[in-house]
């Protein structure tokens, strides 16, 4: 005797029912949680920017953001100016941190003008210029917030990723990797843009030489490291003209 659940009509009805139920369940969850999630992501951006300029709750070895209930206040306290650079002209825009770097990159590919956000922060009398950059790792997107001084020397960096391998590429968001960037020069001795290469076997594992435009790579994470190199080279290069105007 044929089982009731083996019938084609039952199978099709079950499939339709399942799709409707699961689909609406997911849609309901996604839309009802969306405002909270967007708010979390907005605060995370502010935390990232502040982290890069050294406003964070780091202890000796771990990377910790300032808490979410403090972030709005600290952001308006430390970030003095938010700039959007378009065709070489910088204008102030206090929503610049909401600019989606990914969308801007797509626009640039389509031949449109890419808007470059840049955040200016003041802390202990020092001025920081924080630029968001984005690139590709091994599996998915990687991105970073790099804090620079007016000579394009890195003052702080925060890296993050969407889906790099835990224990390998995912370690770009560990302190030992991010802290290596502090003090590194983006420009060569003659003032031309060199970027920072994530280098294997660079004979400088303690990273004492800050002007070699290199940091030590993570073992087993070559492609993620190359992604970091490429992202710094292509995205931070776009900011060079602006930094030249600071010198004049």
């Amino acid at each position: 005797m044929e089982n009731r659940t083996d019938k084609n009509s039952y199978t099709i009805l079950f499939a339709i029912g399942m799709v409707l139920i699961v689909g609406s369940l997911l849609a309901f969850t996604a839309s009802s949680l969306k405002p909270t999630i967007t708010e979390n992501q907005r605060m995370e951006k502010q935390q990232n920017i502040l982290y890069a300029m050294g406003v964070n709750d780091n202890d000796e070895s771990s990377a910790t953001f300032i808490s979410t209930d403090k972030v709005a206040g600290e952001f308006s306290k430390y970030i003095t100016k938010q700039l959007v650079i378009e065709n070489g002209n910088a204008s102030e825009n206090d929503q610049a941190y909401l600019i989606d770097v990914k969308k801007e990159q797509t626009k640039a590919k389509a031949g449109e003008t890419r808007r470059l956000p840049l955040f200016v922060g003041e802390k202990d009398g020092e001025t920081y210029y924080i630029a968001p950059i984005r690139g590709k790792g091994l599996w998915d997107a990687i991105w970073a917030y790099i804090a620079l001084d007016k000579d394009m020397v890195v003052q702080g960096a925060y890296f993050d990723h969407k889906g790099e391998t835990p224990g390998l590429g995912a370690n770009i968001k560990q302190r030992f990797f991010m802290d290596d960037f502090i003090g590194e020069h983006l420009l060569g001795p003659s003032g031309d843009f060199k970027g920072i290469t994530v280098a294997k076997g660079n004979a400088d594992p303690k990273n004492l030489d800050k002007t070699d435009n290199e940091v030590d790579a993570i073992a087993g994470a070559t492609i993620t490291g190359d992604g970091v190199t490429a992202m710094i080279r292509s995205d931070l290069k776009l900011y060079v003209p602006y930094f030249k105007t600071l010198k004049q």
Partner: peptide, 15 residues
């Protein structure tokens, strides 16, 4: 388990 059609059970599990 008693209502899953056996022909598409893998898909149901995945869903």
């Amino acid at each position: 388990r008693n209502i899953i059609p056996s022909k598409i059970r893998i898909i149901v599990q995945l869903v």
